[in-house]
Structures are given as structure tokens and as C-alpha cells.
């Protein structure tokens, strides 16, 4: 469905230092800096897959999305989406993709949302029957039946995001690009949006590519993640696989009475106060049960909790591991 091979992209950026003389100097002459935004990006995404595309700000996420949606051309390498070269056959390409730009709206600000939908119907040349069916489905799944009669400027962010997503799906796209779809939403709306994306993927076998900083999105939606940093792909694999890699590490928090206890080999201290301790246990060295019995031998345990790595922590340690 989507195939990227050795994609490279370089940008030219103007540079200026602060200060009065620098400002005056740049008035006459400007320095440019070449920034390699993408280095040798290669990956393949199959039909119906849901992929989380993650990385810190400025890592190259949106450049990749822009190349895949045909807005940007690469310097070198090959990008084939749906059997087409996106930038070469823009119109036929984009009629089969849907894009949600997180913070930008495609709805007309001052008219009821349904009017925007009607216009999109004509822009994408959606047959009336298909439009009816899709609209009904989207209205019931996203629960926007009442909302669409209101002008977009009067909607809450959650309502608007749901309408934005609906607007991007009216034409039955085979691929959906979601750029931070849940940014700024409250917990309830976030869950509603996630549920909906999941349902769409299952019902229509839509391929979903999701960029986000919200690890709960990733955990709830995707099976595979691609990590990008400084323009390079650092990691590409199943989320469960990755979790396994980190599953041999457990975080243990203990509340106890008595004196401080000593840590055995395989336990790395995170914090130790009187009556409270938190540490990471490497289960390859010491098993969980052995660790617990060792602690309870030394002190009176009041409460103990053991947790595996969350996606959030994994990403933090990944960022640290790759120094990005």
C-alpha cells in the first residue's frame, strides 16, 4: 500500500544571530544553512495496518507525511502510495487519501458544518448515494447529528475535531493520515476519537498513519510504531515486541516500616526515603518473587506495587537511548 525507499530531503534555512548589528548585517546579506530533514527513510505499510509514527518535534514526521500525501517532493528515493507516485499524479492520488491536520481546520468557519460537508462532497465528486451512506455512518459513529447544524466557530474543540475527522472520511479514503488528532482534547473526547478510528479501520480496512505525542493514542490504536529522530528511522516494529523488550524491567514501589533496606544486585534505586522506596528491577538477574521475599525479610512491607513499562516510559527511554 505504502512504500518508501531511501527517501532523502534537504531544506535551505536562513540564519541570523540576535543583536542590532547582526540585524543590520542581515539586511544586506543572508546566510543559509542546509538542513537534512530526512535521511534514507525506508519503510513499507500494508493495507489495513495502523501505524504510529512518532518522534520529537522537528524530527521529520510532517515532512514524511507531506511526501506521502503528495505535497512535497523528495530529493531522492522512491515513494509509492497505492501504486502511484503521489506528487506526479496528485489529483487521482489525493482522491483516495484523507488527511487530518491536527490544528488546522478544513471546515468553513461561519457556516453550519453540514454546508462544508456538502461542498466537500462536490469537491471529491462523491456520488449522492455513497455520500448519504457515509454521512449517516459518520453521524452515528461520531455522534454529531445535532452538531453539524451549527457553524464551526460555535463548536467546542472536541465537537470540531469529530467533524474534522468526519470531513476527511466522507470520500471513503483508503489511507488516512492523522496528524495529532487528539491534541488539546479532554479525556472523554479523546476516547471517543480513538474508538472511532479503530472502528473505521476494522469496518473499511482503512490504512491509518498516526503522528502524535500522546502515547495513549499509540497504545490504544496501533500495533506497529515507527520512531524517527533527526531525520532517520531509528526503530520500526510491533508495539508488543517493543514492550517485551522492556518487560524484563519492572518498576516496584514499596511502603514499609522500619529502617532502610539494602538493595540487591539487579535492583536500581529510583528513590529511597524513610518508609518509601521505588526501584527498577531487572528480572533477568533477580525474579520478582525473590525480590519481594528479600525485601520482606529485611523490613515490614505495608504496600507494594509492581508495574511494567508504559508506552510513555518506553518512548522516553528510547529517546534517551538514541539521544534525540
Amino acid at each position: 500500500m505504502i512504500e518508501l525507499k531511501n527517501i532523502n530531503k534537504t531544506f535551505k534555512v536562513a540564519r541570523r544571530n540576535s543583536g542590532f548589528s547582526e540585524a543590520a548585517k542581515s539586511f544586506f546579506r543572508r546566510d543559509y544553512e542546509l538542513i537534512q530533514a530526512l535521511k534514507d527513510i525506508t519503510f513499507t505499510i500494508k493495507e489495513g495496518e495502523m501505524v504510529g509514527y512518532i518522534g520529537p518535534n522537528g524530527a521529520g514526521k510532517s515532512s514524511t507525511i507531506k511526501i506521502m500525501s503528495g505535497i512535497l517532493t523528495q530529493d531522492s528515493g522512491e515513494c509509492i502510495v497505492n501504486g502511484r507516485i503521489p506528487w506526479k499524479e496528485r489529483i487521482s492520488h489525493v482522491s483516495e487519501i484523507g488527511v487530518v491536520f491536527g490544528q488546522r481546520s478544513q471546515l468553513w468557519w461561519d457556516v453550519p458544518v453540514i454546508d462544508s460537508f456538502e461542498l466537500i462532497k462536490d469537491i471529491y465528486k462523491i456520488p449522492p448515494k455513497t455520500y448519504r451512506v457515509n454521512l449517516d455512518e459518520l453521524i452515528s459513529l461520531l455522534n454529531i447529528g445535532e452538531v453539524i447544524k451549527t457553524p464551526a466557530r460555535q463548536l467546542s474543540l472536541g465537537q470540531r475535531t469529530r467533524c474534522e475527522i468526519a470531513a476527511s472520511l466522507l470520500h471513503n479514503p483508503k489511507i488516512l493520515f492523522l496528524d495529532e488528532p487528539t491534541i488539546g482534547l479532554d479525556a472523554v473526547s479523546k476516547i471517543a476519537v480513538r474508538e472511532f478510528i479503530k472502528t473505521t479501520n476494522q469496518r473499511h480496512n482503512t490504512t491509518v498513519i498516526l503522528t502524535t505525542h500522546d502515547m495513549q493514542d499509540i497504545e490504544a490504536l496501533t500495533e506497529r510504531i515507527i520512531l524517527i529522530g533527526k531525520g532517520q528511522i531509528l526503530l520500526d516494529g510491533a508495539l508488543t515486541e517493543l514492550k517485551k523488550r522492556y518487560s524484563d524491567k519492572k518498576t516496584i514501589t514499596v511502603e514499609y516500616t522500619g529502617n532502610k533496606f539494602t538493595l540487591d544486585e539487579g535492583m536500581t534505586c529510583l528513590e529511597q526515603l524513610k518508609g518509601h522506596a521505588k526501584f527498577v528491577l531487572d528480572t533477568n538477574i533477580l525474579s520478582v518473587s525473590k525480590a519481594i521475599s528479600e525485601i520482606s525479610r529485611q523490613v515490614e512491607v505495608l504496600d507494594i506495587s509492581i508495574s511494567g513499562a508504559t508506552a510513555e516510559e518506553m518512548v522516553v527511554s528510547l529517546y534517551e537511548e538514541y539521544k534525540i
Binding site: V94, V99, F101, R104, Y124
Partner: peptide, 14 residues
Amino acid sequence: SNGEFDRIMVRPRN
């Protein structure tokens, strides 16, 4: 400057 042209580019019209 407000990025609206990106939206134009992902729509199947001239």
C-alpha cells in the same frame, strides 16, 4: 502562510 495551501494540495481538484 497559514498552511491552507497544504489543504488545497490534498484535495482532488485543480
